[in-house]
Design a protein around this nucleic acid. Sequence first.
RNA 1: CGGGGCGUAGCGCAGCCUGGUAGCGCACCUGUUUUGGGAACAGGUGGUCGCUGGUUCAAAUCCAGUCGCCCCGACCA
Length: 566
Amino acid sequence: MKYSQLLIPTLKETPKDAEVVSHQLMVRAGMIRKVAAGLYSYLPLGLRVIRKFEAIVREEMNQSGAQEVFLPSVIPGELWQESGRWDHYGKELLRIKDRHGNEFCYGPTHEEVITDLVRQTIRSYRELPVNLYQIQTKFRDEIRPRFGLMRGREFTMKDAYSFHTSWESLDTTYDAMRDTYNAIFNRCGLKFKMVQADSGAIGGNFSAEFMVLAQTGEDAIICCASCGYAANVEAAELVGPEHPKSQVIPVAEAIETPGKKSVAQVSEFLNILPSGVLKTMVYQADGQTVLVVLPGDREVNEIKLKKVLKCETVGLVDPAEVAKKLPGNHPGYIGPVGIITVPIILDRSVLNNTPYVVGGNAVGIHLQNTVVGRDFSAQTVADVVNAAAGDQCSHCDTGVYEIHRGIETGHIFKLGTKYSEAMSCTYTAEDGTPQPMVMGCYGIGIGRTVAAAIEQNHDNAGIVWPSALAPFQVSIIVTNGTDPGFIEVGNQLYSQLSGKFDVLLDDRTESAGIKFKDNDLIGIPYQIIIGKKWAEDQKVEIKTRKTKHIELLSLDQVTDYLAALT
RNA sequence: CGGGGCGUAGCGCAGCCUGGUAGCGCACCUGUUUUGGGAACAGGUGGUCGCUGGUUCAAAUCCAGUCGCCCCGACCA
Protein backbone atom coordinates (compact mmCIF):
# COMPACT_ATOMS: atom_id res chain seq x y z
CA MET A 1 0.00 0.00 0.00
CA LYS A 2 1.01 3.57 -0.48
CA TYR A 3 1.66 5.62 2.60
CA SER A 4 0.35 8.71 0.86
CA GLN A 5 -3.09 7.12 0.63
CA LEU A 6 -3.29 5.75 4.15
CA LEU A 7 -4.73 7.53 7.18
CA ILE A 8 -1.82 7.32 9.62
CA PRO A 9 -2.06 10.42 11.79
CA THR A 10 1.17 10.19 13.77
CA LEU A 11 1.78 12.50 16.70
CA LYS A 12 5.01 14.08 17.80
CA GLU A 13 3.76 14.76 21.29
CA THR A 14 2.65 12.22 23.86
CA PRO A 15 -1.06 12.46 24.58
CA LYS A 16 -1.53 13.61 28.15
CA ASP A 17 -4.13 11.04 29.13
CA ALA A 18 -2.00 8.06 28.14
CA GLU A 19 -0.06 6.60 31.02
CA VAL A 20 1.46 3.34 29.82
CA VAL A 21 3.83 3.03 26.87
CA SER A 22 1.58 0.85 24.75
CA HIS A 23 -1.27 3.34 25.03
CA GLN A 24 0.98 6.30 24.26
CA LEU A 25 2.55 4.61 21.27
CA MET A 26 -0.71 3.33 19.84
CA VAL A 27 -2.10 6.84 19.86
CA ARG A 28 1.13 8.41 18.60
CA ALA A 29 1.47 5.83 15.83
CA GLY A 30 -2.04 6.63 14.63
CA MET A 31 -3.42 3.18 15.50
CA ILE A 32 -6.25 4.15 17.81
CA ARG A 33 -8.15 7.21 18.96
CA LYS A 34 -10.23 7.55 22.06
CA VAL A 35 -13.96 8.14 21.69
CA ALA A 36 -14.87 8.07 25.40
CA ALA A 37 -13.48 6.49 28.55
CA GLY A 38 -12.54 2.94 27.67
CA LEU A 39 -13.88 3.20 24.11
CA TYR A 40 -11.59 3.44 21.10
CA SER A 41 -11.76 3.75 17.35
CA TYR A 42 -9.30 1.64 15.40
CA LEU A 43 -7.60 3.44 12.52
CA PRO A 44 -6.22 1.59 9.49
CA LEU A 45 -2.84 0.82 11.02
CA GLY A 46 -4.29 -0.37 14.32
CA LEU A 47 -6.88 -2.47 12.58
CA ARG A 48 -4.25 -4.13 10.41
CA VAL A 49 -2.37 -5.29 13.51
CA ILE A 50 -5.57 -6.50 15.15
CA ARG A 51 -6.46 -8.41 11.97
CA LYS A 52 -2.98 -9.95 11.80
CA PHE A 53 -3.35 -11.30 15.30
CA GLU A 54 -6.90 -12.48 14.67
CA ALA A 55 -5.71 -14.36 11.60
CA ILE A 56 -3.12 -16.21 13.66
CA VAL A 57 -5.74 -17.01 16.30
CA ARG A 58 -8.19 -18.26 13.64
CA GLU A 59 -5.62 -20.45 11.94
CA GLU A 60 -4.52 -22.11 15.15
CA MET A 61 -8.05 -22.49 16.50
CA ASN A 62 -9.27 -24.04 13.25
CA GLN A 63 -6.21 -26.27 13.23
CA SER A 64 -7.20 -27.54 16.68
CA GLY A 65 -10.61 -28.57 15.40
CA ALA A 66 -12.58 -25.69 16.89
CA GLN A 67 -15.34 -24.15 14.76
CA GLU A 68 -15.97 -20.45 14.37
CA VAL A 69 -19.39 -19.01 15.14
CA PHE A 70 -20.60 -15.46 15.72
CA LEU A 71 -22.92 -14.72 18.61
CA PRO A 72 -24.84 -11.51 19.26
CA SER A 73 -23.21 -8.83 21.40
CA VAL A 74 -26.58 -7.90 22.91
CA ILE A 75 -28.05 -10.67 25.03
CA PRO A 76 -31.56 -11.09 26.48
CA GLY A 77 -31.64 -10.62 30.23
CA GLU A 78 -33.65 -13.79 30.68
CA LEU A 79 -30.69 -15.96 29.66
CA TRP A 80 -28.63 -14.30 32.35
CA GLN A 81 -31.44 -14.74 34.83
CA GLU A 82 -31.51 -18.41 33.99
CA SER A 83 -27.82 -18.85 34.78
CA GLY A 84 -28.23 -16.76 37.91
CA ARG A 85 -25.65 -14.22 36.85
CA TRP A 86 -28.13 -11.39 36.23
CA ASP A 87 -28.21 -10.79 39.97
CA HIS A 88 -24.60 -11.62 40.72
CA TYR A 89 -22.55 -10.01 38.00
CA GLY A 90 -22.88 -6.53 39.44
CA LYS A 91 -22.43 -3.15 37.87
CA GLU A 92 -19.91 -4.30 35.29
CA LEU A 93 -22.83 -5.72 33.34
CA LEU A 94 -24.21 -3.02 31.09
CA ARG A 95 -27.97 -3.46 31.18
CA ILE A 96 -30.19 -1.93 28.55
CA LYS A 97 -33.86 -1.98 27.62
CA ASP A 98 -35.37 -2.16 24.19
CA ARG A 99 -38.41 -0.14 23.06
CA HIS A 100 -40.78 -2.70 24.51
CA GLY A 101 -39.15 -2.42 27.89
CA ASN A 102 -37.53 -5.84 27.66
CA GLU A 103 -34.23 -6.19 29.45
CA PHE A 104 -30.99 -6.98 27.70
CA CYS A 105 -27.34 -6.72 28.48
CA TYR A 106 -24.29 -6.04 26.39
CA GLY A 107 -22.34 -9.27 26.63
CA PRO A 108 -19.21 -9.23 28.79
CA THR A 109 -18.80 -12.95 28.11
CA HIS A 110 -20.93 -15.51 26.32
CA GLU A 111 -21.44 -18.68 28.36
CA GLU A 112 -25.21 -18.16 28.44
CA VAL A 113 -25.64 -17.60 24.73
CA ILE A 114 -23.46 -20.49 23.69
CA THR A 115 -25.07 -22.82 26.21
CA ASP A 116 -28.48 -21.81 24.90
CA LEU A 117 -27.33 -22.51 21.34
CA VAL A 118 -25.89 -25.90 22.16
CA ARG A 119 -28.85 -27.12 24.22
CA GLN A 120 -31.12 -26.29 21.29
CA THR A 121 -29.01 -27.98 18.68
CA ILE A 122 -27.21 -30.91 20.27
CA ARG A 123 -29.18 -33.89 21.54
CA SER A 124 -26.99 -36.96 21.60
CA TYR A 125 -23.64 -38.09 22.97
CA ARG A 126 -22.86 -38.96 19.33
CA GLU A 127 -22.63 -35.24 18.53
CA LEU A 128 -20.12 -34.47 21.27
CA PRO A 129 -17.59 -33.12 21.88
CA VAL A 130 -17.74 -29.76 20.12
CA ASN A 131 -15.58 -26.70 20.55
CA LEU A 132 -17.08 -23.42 19.29
CA TYR A 133 -15.33 -20.07 19.22
CA GLN A 134 -15.95 -16.52 18.12
CA ILE A 135 -14.05 -13.26 17.88
CA GLN A 136 -16.45 -10.74 19.31
CA THR A 137 -16.69 -7.27 20.80
CA LYS A 138 -17.52 -7.37 24.48
CA PHE A 139 -18.39 -4.76 27.03
CA ARG A 140 -17.57 -4.63 30.71
CA ASP A 141 -18.42 -1.44 32.53
CA GLU A 142 -15.11 -1.27 34.38
CA ILE A 143 -14.95 0.96 37.46
CA ARG A 144 -11.88 2.64 36.10
CA PRO A 145 -10.96 1.94 32.51
CA ARG A 146 -7.32 2.74 31.86
CA PHE A 147 -4.18 1.91 29.95
CA GLY A 148 -5.79 2.19 26.49
CA LEU A 149 -6.64 -1.19 25.01
CA MET A 150 -5.20 -2.94 28.04
CA ARG A 151 -8.23 -2.34 30.20
CA GLY A 152 -10.94 -0.76 28.09
CA ARG A 153 -14.65 -1.10 28.59
CA GLU A 154 -15.31 -2.26 25.06
CA PHE A 155 -12.79 -4.81 23.87
CA THR A 156 -12.35 -7.62 21.39
CA MET A 157 -12.01 -11.12 22.65
CA LYS A 158 -11.65 -14.56 21.18
CA ASP A 159 -13.75 -16.83 23.33
CA ALA A 160 -14.20 -20.57 22.86
CA TYR A 161 -16.51 -22.96 24.66
CA SER A 162 -16.26 -26.73 24.54
CA PHE A 163 -18.95 -29.28 25.43
CA HIS A 164 -18.30 -32.85 26.50
CA THR A 165 -19.82 -36.04 27.81
CA SER A 166 -17.12 -36.46 30.44
CA TRP A 167 -14.31 -34.78 32.32
CA GLU A 168 -11.86 -37.02 30.47
CA SER A 169 -13.09 -35.69 27.15
CA LEU A 170 -12.82 -32.15 28.53
CA ASP A 171 -9.23 -32.89 29.55
CA THR A 172 -8.37 -33.73 25.95
CA THR A 173 -9.74 -30.46 24.61
CA TYR A 174 -8.29 -28.48 27.49
CA ASP A 175 -4.85 -29.88 26.70
CA ALA A 176 -5.35 -29.14 23.01
CA MET A 177 -6.27 -25.55 23.83
CA ARG A 178 -3.20 -25.25 26.03
CA ASP A 179 -1.04 -26.37 23.11
CA THR A 180 -2.93 -24.08 20.74
CA TYR A 181 -2.41 -21.07 22.98
CA ASN A 182 1.28 -21.83 23.26
CA ALA A 183 1.44 -22.01 19.48
CA ILE A 184 -0.44 -18.71 19.08
CA PHE A 185 1.75 -16.70 21.41
CA ASN A 186 4.91 -18.32 20.08
CA ARG A 187 3.96 -17.38 16.53
CA CYS A 188 3.53 -13.78 17.69
CA GLY A 189 7.12 -13.78 18.90
CA LEU A 190 6.12 -12.88 22.44
CA LYS A 191 7.89 -13.78 25.66
CA PHE A 192 5.18 -15.32 27.82
CA LYS A 193 4.53 -17.81 30.57
CA MET A 194 1.71 -20.21 31.19
CA VAL A 195 0.85 -20.05 34.87
CA GLN A 196 -1.48 -21.78 37.26
CA ALA A 197 -4.39 -19.49 37.97
CA ASP A 198 -7.00 -19.17 40.62
CA SER A 199 -9.74 -21.55 39.65
CA GLY A 200 -12.47 -19.82 41.59
CA ALA A 201 -15.22 -21.52 43.50
CA ILE A 202 -14.98 -24.86 41.71
CA GLY A 203 -11.58 -25.59 43.14
CA GLY A 204 -8.84 -27.80 41.86
CA ASN A 205 -6.11 -27.25 39.34
CA PHE A 206 -8.35 -26.48 36.40
CA SER A 207 -7.30 -23.13 35.14
CA ALA A 208 -4.23 -21.66 33.46
CA GLU A 209 -3.41 -18.14 32.42
CA PHE A 210 -1.10 -17.01 29.63
CA MET A 211 0.96 -14.07 30.75
CA VAL A 212 2.94 -11.87 28.41
CA LEU A 213 5.93 -10.78 30.47
CA ALA A 214 6.32 -7.04 30.91
CA GLN A 215 7.45 -4.75 33.72
CA THR A 216 4.17 -2.88 33.58
CA GLY A 217 2.01 -6.00 33.88
CA GLU A 218 -0.91 -5.78 36.28
CA ASP A 219 -0.41 -9.32 37.57
CA ALA A 220 2.37 -10.69 39.72
CA ILE A 221 3.65 -14.12 38.74
CA ILE A 222 5.52 -16.56 40.93
CA CYS A 223 8.03 -18.78 39.13
CA CYS A 224 10.44 -21.45 40.22
CA ALA A 225 13.55 -21.45 38.02
CA SER A 226 14.48 -24.88 39.25
CA CYS A 227 11.37 -26.97 38.48
CA GLY A 228 9.41 -24.65 36.22
CA TYR A 229 6.39 -24.27 38.48
CA ALA A 230 4.68 -20.96 37.68
CA ALA A 231 1.54 -19.45 39.12
CA ASN A 232 -0.33 -16.24 39.48
CA VAL A 233 0.47 -14.86 42.91
CA GLU A 234 -3.26 -15.13 43.57
CA ALA A 235 -2.96 -18.90 43.28
CA ALA A 236 0.67 -19.62 44.18
CA GLU A 237 0.95 -22.23 46.87
CA LEU A 238 3.20 -21.91 49.85
CA VAL A 239 4.87 -24.76 51.68
CA GLY A 240 3.92 -25.38 55.28
CA PRO A 241 5.76 -23.92 58.28
CA GLU A 242 9.32 -24.77 59.08
CA HIS A 243 9.71 -27.52 61.62
CA PRO A 244 8.80 -26.19 65.03
CA LYS A 245 11.85 -25.25 66.98
CA SER A 246 12.21 -26.88 70.34
CA GLN A 247 12.96 -23.93 72.47
CA VAL A 248 11.72 -22.58 75.72
CA ILE A 249 10.00 -19.26 75.34
CA PRO A 250 9.60 -16.97 78.32
CA VAL A 251 6.19 -16.04 79.56
CA ALA A 252 4.31 -13.52 77.51
CA GLU A 253 4.34 -9.96 78.82
CA ALA A 254 2.79 -6.65 77.97
CA ILE A 255 5.01 -3.80 76.81
CA GLU A 256 4.15 -0.18 76.25
CA THR A 257 4.32 0.86 72.63
CA PRO A 258 2.83 4.34 72.65
CA GLY A 259 1.89 5.55 69.19
CA LYS A 260 3.43 2.49 67.52
CA LYS A 261 0.66 1.13 65.35
CA SER A 262 2.12 -0.25 62.15
CA VAL A 263 4.32 -3.31 61.87
CA ALA A 264 7.13 -1.08 60.68
CA GLN A 265 6.82 1.18 63.71
CA VAL A 266 6.54 -1.65 66.23
CA SER A 267 9.42 -3.67 64.82
CA GLU A 268 11.66 -0.64 64.68
CA PHE A 269 10.69 0.41 68.21
CA LEU A 270 11.46 -3.05 69.61
CA ASN A 271 14.42 -3.60 67.30
CA ILE A 272 13.14 -6.86 65.84
CA LEU A 273 12.37 -7.99 62.28
CA PRO A 274 8.87 -7.32 60.87
CA SER A 275 8.50 -11.09 60.53
CA GLY A 276 8.63 -11.31 64.31
CA VAL A 277 5.47 -9.25 64.63
CA LEU A 278 2.05 -10.70 63.89
CA LYS A 279 -0.50 -8.41 62.35
CA THR A 280 -4.14 -8.96 63.07
CA MET A 281 -6.49 -7.70 60.41
CA VAL A 282 -10.22 -7.29 60.74
CA TYR A 283 -12.12 -8.77 57.82
CA GLN A 284 -15.73 -8.99 56.86
CA ALA A 285 -16.58 -12.31 55.18
CA ASP A 286 -20.12 -12.50 53.81
CA GLY A 287 -21.26 -10.31 56.68
CA GLN A 288 -19.36 -12.13 59.41
CA THR A 289 -16.42 -10.48 61.14
CA VAL A 290 -13.21 -12.51 61.36
CA LEU A 291 -9.65 -11.79 62.44
CA VAL A 292 -6.82 -12.79 60.14
CA VAL A 293 -3.47 -13.22 61.85
CA LEU A 294 -0.31 -13.33 59.77
CA PRO A 295 3.39 -12.47 59.94
CA GLY A 296 4.15 -8.75 59.73
CA ASP A 297 6.13 -9.08 56.51
CA ARG A 298 3.31 -10.85 54.64
CA GLU A 299 0.23 -9.79 52.75
CA VAL A 300 -3.19 -11.37 53.01
CA ASN A 301 -4.24 -13.23 49.88
CA GLU A 302 -7.97 -12.53 49.78
CA ILE A 303 -8.60 -15.21 47.18
CA LYS A 304 -7.08 -17.89 49.38
CA LEU A 305 -9.01 -16.44 52.29
CA LYS A 306 -12.28 -16.69 50.38
CA LYS A 307 -11.65 -20.34 49.64
CA VAL A 308 -10.73 -21.13 53.22
CA LEU A 309 -13.85 -19.43 54.52
CA LYS A 310 -15.99 -20.74 51.64
CA CYS A 311 -17.58 -17.34 51.22
CA GLU A 312 -18.53 -15.07 48.31
CA THR A 313 -16.98 -11.80 49.39
CA VAL A 314 -14.24 -10.75 51.76
CA GLY A 315 -13.04 -7.26 52.48
CA LEU A 316 -11.22 -5.26 55.10
CA VAL A 317 -13.39 -3.59 57.67
CA ASP A 318 -13.11 0.18 57.54
CA PRO A 319 -10.77 1.31 60.35
CA ALA A 320 -13.47 3.63 61.65
CA GLU A 321 -15.83 0.65 61.99
CA VAL A 322 -13.38 -1.56 63.87
CA ALA A 323 -14.39 -0.29 67.30
CA LYS A 324 -17.97 -1.39 66.60
CA LYS A 325 -16.90 -4.93 65.80
CA LEU A 326 -14.38 -5.19 68.63
CA PRO A 327 -15.51 -2.92 71.46
CA GLY A 328 -12.70 -0.98 73.06
CA ASN A 329 -10.19 -1.97 70.40
CA HIS A 330 -8.26 0.11 67.91
CA PRO A 331 -6.49 -0.73 64.65
CA GLY A 332 -2.79 -1.00 65.40
CA TYR A 333 -3.22 -2.69 68.74
CA ILE A 334 -5.42 -5.66 67.90
CA GLY A 335 -4.11 -9.07 68.71
CA PRO A 336 -5.34 -12.66 68.92
CA VAL A 337 -4.71 -13.16 72.63
CA GLY A 338 -7.91 -13.35 74.65
CA ILE A 339 -10.26 -12.83 71.70
CA ILE A 340 -13.28 -15.07 72.03
CA THR A 341 -16.12 -13.27 70.29
CA VAL A 342 -14.66 -13.33 66.79
CA PRO A 343 -13.27 -16.32 64.84
CA ILE A 344 -9.54 -16.20 64.18
CA ILE A 345 -7.93 -17.34 60.95
CA LEU A 346 -4.24 -17.99 61.43
CA ASP A 347 -1.72 -18.23 58.65
CA ARG A 348 -0.12 -21.63 58.97
CA SER A 349 3.44 -20.33 58.70
CA VAL A 350 3.01 -19.05 62.26
CA LEU A 351 2.92 -22.62 63.63
CA ASN A 352 6.64 -22.87 64.22
CA ASN A 353 6.98 -22.43 67.96
CA THR A 354 8.66 -19.06 67.82
CA PRO A 355 7.77 -16.06 69.94
CA TYR A 356 5.84 -13.25 68.33
CA VAL A 357 4.92 -9.71 69.21
CA VAL A 358 1.18 -9.15 68.88
CA GLY A 359 -1.26 -6.36 69.57
CA GLY A 360 -2.33 -6.08 73.21
CA ASN A 361 -5.96 -5.20 72.50
CA ALA A 362 -5.46 -1.90 74.29
CA VAL A 363 -4.18 1.39 72.96
CA GLY A 364 -0.40 1.73 73.31
CA ILE A 365 0.12 -1.90 74.38
CA HIS A 366 1.65 -4.89 72.60
CA LEU A 367 2.47 -8.33 73.97
CA GLN A 368 5.80 -10.01 73.40
CA ASN A 369 6.86 -13.67 73.60
CA THR A 370 3.44 -14.94 72.64
CA VAL A 371 3.24 -18.41 71.12
CA VAL A 372 0.52 -20.13 69.16
CA GLY A 373 -1.14 -22.82 71.21
CA ARG A 374 0.13 -21.52 74.52
CA ASP A 375 -1.03 -17.93 74.49
CA PHE A 376 -3.69 -18.01 71.82
CA SER A 377 -5.37 -20.37 69.42
CA ALA A 378 -7.27 -20.12 66.18
CA GLN A 379 -10.46 -21.62 64.78
CA THR A 380 -8.79 -22.10 61.42
CA VAL A 381 -5.17 -22.56 60.40
CA ALA A 382 -4.49 -22.27 56.67
CA ASP A 383 -2.33 -20.81 53.92
CA VAL A 384 -3.82 -17.33 53.52
CA VAL A 385 -0.88 -15.14 52.48
CA ASN A 386 0.79 -14.20 49.19
CA ALA A 387 3.91 -16.02 48.15
CA ALA A 388 6.92 -13.75 47.79
CA ALA A 389 10.31 -13.78 46.12
CA GLY A 390 12.72 -16.05 47.97
CA ASP A 391 10.09 -18.41 49.39
CA GLN A 392 10.81 -22.10 49.04
CA CYS A 393 9.11 -23.67 46.03
CA SER A 394 6.06 -25.77 46.84
CA HIS A 395 6.74 -28.18 43.95
CA CYS A 396 10.41 -29.07 44.33
CA ASP A 397 12.97 -29.33 47.09
CA THR A 398 15.67 -27.07 45.72
CA GLY A 399 14.00 -24.07 44.09
CA VAL A 400 13.01 -20.73 45.48
CA TYR A 401 10.40 -18.42 44.03
CA GLU A 402 11.15 -15.55 41.72
CA ILE A 403 8.60 -12.90 41.05
CA HIS A 404 7.80 -11.45 37.62
CA ARG A 405 5.11 -9.22 36.21
CA GLY A 406 2.83 -10.17 33.40
CA ILE A 407 -0.16 -9.13 31.34
CA GLU A 408 -2.94 -11.71 31.25
CA THR A 409 -3.70 -12.25 27.58
CA GLY A 410 -5.18 -15.74 27.66
CA HIS A 411 -7.08 -17.91 30.10
CA ILE A 412 -8.18 -21.51 29.75
CA PHE A 413 -10.64 -22.94 32.20
CA LYS A 414 -12.53 -26.11 33.00
CA LEU A 415 -16.05 -24.98 33.79
CA GLY A 416 -17.66 -28.32 34.50
CA THR A 417 -21.44 -28.37 34.63
CA LYS A 418 -22.11 -25.02 36.27
CA TYR A 419 -23.88 -23.53 33.27
CA SER A 420 -25.19 -26.70 31.71
CA GLU A 421 -26.98 -27.60 34.95
CA ALA A 422 -28.33 -24.12 35.55
CA MET A 423 -29.61 -23.93 31.98
CA SER A 424 -30.56 -27.57 31.38
CA CYS A 425 -28.04 -28.11 28.64
CA THR A 426 -28.22 -31.88 28.45
CA TYR A 427 -27.57 -34.68 26.00
CA THR A 428 -28.92 -38.18 25.82
CA ALA A 429 -26.29 -40.64 26.97
CA GLU A 430 -25.74 -44.15 25.67
CA ASP A 431 -28.02 -45.54 28.34
CA GLY A 432 -30.79 -43.17 27.27
CA THR A 433 -30.61 -40.89 30.31
CA PRO A 434 -30.25 -37.11 30.07
CA GLN A 435 -26.90 -35.83 31.33
CA PRO A 436 -25.55 -32.30 31.75
CA MET A 437 -22.72 -31.49 29.39
CA VAL A 438 -19.27 -30.87 30.83
CA MET A 439 -17.92 -27.53 29.64
CA GLY A 440 -14.64 -25.72 29.18
CA CYS A 441 -13.98 -22.13 28.18
CA TYR A 442 -10.95 -20.50 26.63
CA GLY A 443 -10.37 -16.76 26.11
CA ILE A 444 -7.79 -14.55 24.46
CA GLY A 445 -7.84 -10.76 24.72
CA ILE A 446 -7.17 -9.58 21.18
CA GLY A 447 -6.56 -5.89 21.80
CA ARG A 448 -4.81 -6.59 25.04
CA THR A 449 -2.37 -8.95 23.37
CA VAL A 450 -1.53 -6.29 20.80
CA ALA A 451 -0.99 -3.77 23.60
CA ALA A 452 1.11 -6.32 25.50
CA ALA A 453 3.24 -6.88 22.39
CA ILE A 454 4.07 -3.17 22.37
CA GLU A 455 4.62 -3.09 26.10
CA GLN A 456 7.23 -5.80 25.57
CA ASN A 457 8.71 -4.51 22.28
CA HIS A 458 9.45 -0.81 22.02
CA ASP A 459 12.30 1.67 22.30
CA ASN A 460 12.74 5.44 22.44
CA ALA A 461 11.85 5.84 18.79
CA GLY A 462 8.60 3.90 18.98
CA ILE A 463 7.16 0.45 18.46
CA VAL A 464 9.37 -2.50 17.49
CA TRP A 465 6.83 -4.97 16.11
CA PRO A 466 7.47 -8.67 16.08
CA SER A 467 7.29 -9.51 12.38
CA ALA A 468 4.14 -11.61 12.75
CA LEU A 469 2.11 -8.74 14.17
CA ALA A 470 3.59 -5.79 12.23
CA PRO A 471 1.05 -3.85 10.16
CA PHE A 472 3.58 -4.10 7.33
CA GLN A 473 6.67 -6.26 7.35
CA VAL A 474 8.63 -4.04 5.02
CA SER A 475 8.52 -0.39 4.09
CA ILE A 476 10.18 1.25 1.11
CA ILE A 477 11.28 4.74 2.00
CA VAL A 478 11.75 6.97 -1.01
CA THR A 479 13.81 9.65 0.69
CA ASN A 480 13.11 12.22 -1.97
CA GLY A 481 9.49 11.84 -2.97
CA THR A 482 9.84 14.30 -5.83
CA ASP A 483 12.86 12.78 -7.56
CA PRO A 484 11.60 10.82 -10.61
CA GLY A 485 14.56 8.41 -10.48
CA PHE A 486 13.93 7.53 -6.82
CA ILE A 487 10.20 7.15 -7.42
CA GLU A 488 10.92 4.80 -10.28
CA VAL A 489 13.12 2.57 -8.10
CA GLY A 490 10.53 2.67 -5.33
CA ASN A 491 7.79 1.50 -7.65
CA GLN A 492 10.00 -1.20 -9.09
CA LEU A 493 10.88 -2.55 -5.63
CA TYR A 494 7.26 -2.33 -4.60
CA SER A 495 6.09 -4.59 -7.39
CA GLN A 496 9.08 -6.85 -6.87
CA LEU A 497 8.18 -7.43 -3.20
CA SER A 498 4.38 -7.27 -3.28
CA GLY A 499 2.79 -10.67 -2.93
CA LYS A 500 5.83 -11.96 -1.10
CA PHE A 501 5.64 -9.56 1.84
CA ASP A 502 3.31 -6.99 3.33
CA VAL A 503 4.85 -3.90 1.83
CA LEU A 504 4.32 -0.23 2.57
CA LEU A 505 5.61 2.25 -0.02
CA ASP A 506 6.42 5.55 1.66
CA ASP A 507 5.91 7.74 -1.39
CA ARG A 508 5.10 10.93 0.51
CA THR A 509 6.73 14.21 -0.46
CA GLU A 510 7.75 14.80 3.14
CA SER A 511 11.38 15.30 4.05
CA ALA A 512 13.51 12.22 4.65
CA GLY A 513 13.73 12.92 8.37
CA ILE A 514 9.97 12.80 8.82
CA LYS A 515 9.79 9.49 6.99
CA PHE A 516 12.52 7.92 9.10
CA LYS A 517 10.82 9.06 12.29
CA ASP A 518 7.39 7.85 11.19
CA ASN A 519 8.60 4.45 10.01
CA ASP A 520 10.43 3.92 13.28
CA LEU A 521 7.46 5.10 15.31
CA ILE A 522 4.99 2.77 13.64
CA GLY A 523 7.54 0.02 14.04
CA ILE A 524 8.04 -1.45 10.55
CA PRO A 525 10.54 -4.30 11.11
CA TYR A 526 12.48 -3.86 7.85
CA GLN A 527 12.91 -0.53 6.09
CA ILE A 528 14.36 -0.22 2.62
CA ILE A 529 15.87 3.20 2.07
CA ILE A 530 16.28 4.64 -1.40
CA GLY A 531 18.55 7.64 -1.03
CA LYS A 532 22.15 8.72 -1.10
CA LYS A 533 23.57 5.27 -1.58
CA TRP A 534 21.30 4.75 -4.54
CA ALA A 535 22.41 7.99 -6.15
CA GLU A 536 26.05 7.08 -5.53
CA ASP A 537 26.27 3.44 -6.51
CA GLN A 538 22.84 1.96 -7.11
CA LYS A 539 22.50 0.34 -3.69
CA VAL A 540 19.57 0.43 -1.31
CA GLU A 541 19.91 0.28 2.44
CA ILE A 542 17.88 -2.23 4.45
CA LYS A 543 17.51 -1.25 8.05
CA THR A 544 16.42 -3.72 10.69
CA ARG A 545 14.24 -1.77 13.13
CA LYS A 546 15.12 -3.78 16.20
CA THR A 547 18.91 -3.82 15.86
CA LYS A 548 19.34 -0.68 13.72
CA HIS A 549 21.63 -2.77 11.53
CA ILE A 550 21.92 -1.47 7.97
CA GLU A 551 22.75 -3.68 4.99
CA LEU A 552 23.70 -2.27 1.58
CA LEU A 553 22.23 -4.29 -1.26
CA SER A 554 21.59 -4.14 -4.96
CA LEU A 555 17.97 -4.47 -6.10
CA ASP A 556 18.21 -8.11 -7.11
CA GLN A 557 19.52 -9.10 -3.67
CA VAL A 558 16.66 -7.55 -1.72
CA THR A 559 14.06 -10.32 -2.01
CA ASP A 560 16.39 -13.08 -0.86
CA TYR A 561 17.74 -10.99 1.98
CA LEU A 562 14.25 -10.29 3.31
CA ALA A 563 13.06 -13.84 2.76
CA ALA A 564 15.89 -15.06 4.97
CA LEU A 565 14.89 -12.65 7.74
CA THR A 566 11.12 -12.93 7.87
C1' C B 1 -17.64 4.88 45.81
C1' G B 2 -14.10 8.52 48.55
C1' G B 3 -9.83 12.21 47.72
C1' G B 4 -7.26 15.41 44.17
C1' G B 5 -6.86 17.69 39.35
C1' C B 6 -8.37 19.24 34.53
C1' G B 7 -12.01 20.98 30.48
C1' U B 8 -9.61 27.69 26.23
C1' A B 9 -8.19 26.18 17.84
C1' G B 10 -7.04 19.31 15.46
C1' C B 11 -2.90 18.37 19.49
C1' G B 12 0.04 20.41 23.75
C1' C B 13 -0.58 24.64 26.74
C1' A B 14 -0.71 30.16 28.71
C1' G B 15 -4.41 33.73 30.18
C1' C B 16 -8.38 33.14 35.37
C1' C B 17 -5.72 35.09 41.40
C1' U B 18 -6.66 41.28 40.35
C1' G B 19 -13.54 40.92 35.13
C1' G B 20 -12.62 45.32 30.03
C1' U B 21 -12.22 43.32 21.96
C1' A B 22 -8.73 35.41 23.32
C1' G B 23 -2.96 34.21 22.94
C1' C B 24 1.64 30.83 22.17
C1' G B 25 4.00 26.30 20.06
C1' C B 26 2.94 22.28 16.85
C1' A B 27 -0.46 20.91 12.99
C1' C B 28 -3.32 22.91 8.69
C1' C B 29 -3.78 26.27 3.89
C1' U B 30 -1.01 29.53 -0.12
C1' G B 31 3.71 30.84 -2.23
C1' U B 32 9.07 30.51 -2.59
C1' U B 33 13.43 28.06 -1.21
C1' U B 34 14.37 23.11 0.75
C1' U B 35 14.89 17.15 0.99
C1' G B 36 19.51 11.54 5.30
C1' G B 37 16.70 11.93 11.35
C1' G B 38 10.22 15.60 12.85
C1' A B 39 13.30 22.23 7.42
C1' A B 40 13.39 28.11 6.48
C1' C B 41 10.99 32.58 5.20
C1' A B 42 6.50 35.32 4.05
C1' G B 43 1.34 35.42 4.22
C1' G B 44 -3.22 32.97 5.91
C1' U B 45 -7.52 29.74 7.98
C1' G B 46 -9.46 28.11 12.43
C1' G B 47 -12.10 28.95 19.14
C1' U B 48 -20.36 30.84 21.11
C1' C B 49 -13.25 29.49 26.38
C1' G B 50 -17.46 21.78 28.35
C1' C B 51 -22.76 22.98 29.41
C1' U B 52 -26.73 25.68 32.26
C1' G B 53 -28.00 29.48 35.33
C1' G B 54 -26.54 33.71 38.44
C1' U B 55 -23.70 38.42 39.81
C1' U B 56 -22.16 42.74 36.70
C1' C B 57 -22.56 48.26 32.32
C1' A B 58 -19.24 44.14 31.00
C1' A B 59 -17.59 37.09 32.54
C1' A B 60 -12.70 32.44 29.72
C1' U B 61 -11.90 35.15 34.42
C1' C B 62 -16.33 35.77 40.15
C1' C B 63 -20.59 32.43 42.24
C1' A B 64 -23.88 28.02 41.98
C1' G B 65 -25.17 23.74 39.58
C1' U B 66 -24.28 20.08 35.93
C1' C B 67 -21.70 16.91 32.44
C1' G B 68 -17.19 14.86 30.74
C1' C B 69 -12.17 13.40 31.37
C1' C B 70 -7.59 12.23 34.13
C1' C B 71 -4.87 10.71 38.50
C1' C B 72 -4.67 8.56 43.49
C1' G B 73 -7.08 5.20 47.07
C1' A B 74 -7.86 -2.37 47.26
C1' C B 75 -3.17 -4.26 52.29
C1' C B 76 -3.00 0.04 55.70
C1' A B 77 -3.76 -2.72 61.64
